[in-house]
């Protein structure tokens, strides 16, 4: 196991490379789900405001 993590002495290069790969792609997915949440929240607020305005007039 220790041998595996040591990567034949290249651990300082191999593992950061894999970390960057997964972190960048995870960020891509997180940004997308956040964009979706924001859109739905904002759009709901707009619809609610429209409904209230219609009721008051």
């Amino acid at each position: 196991m220790r041998e595996f993590f040591a990567m034949g002495g290249f651990a300082a290069y191999v593992w950061p490379a894999y970390a960057v790969f997964f972190l960048v792609l995870a960020t891509d997915l997180i940004m997308t789900s956040r964009r979706r949440r924001n859109f739905i929240r904002q759009f709901r607020a707009i619809l609610l405001r429209q409904a209230l305005r219609r009721k008051s007039s």
Partner: peptide, 24 residues
């Protein structure tokens, strides 16, 4: 790539970056 493939005869284990570098 990380467990089954043998180390490279010239580059040792450093070559294992290939499995993400080349597909990317």
């Amino acid at each position: 790539g990380l467990l089954l493939a043998p180390p490279d005869y010239q580059q040792g284990d450093a070559y294992r970056i290939i499995f993400i570098h080349v597909p990317s």
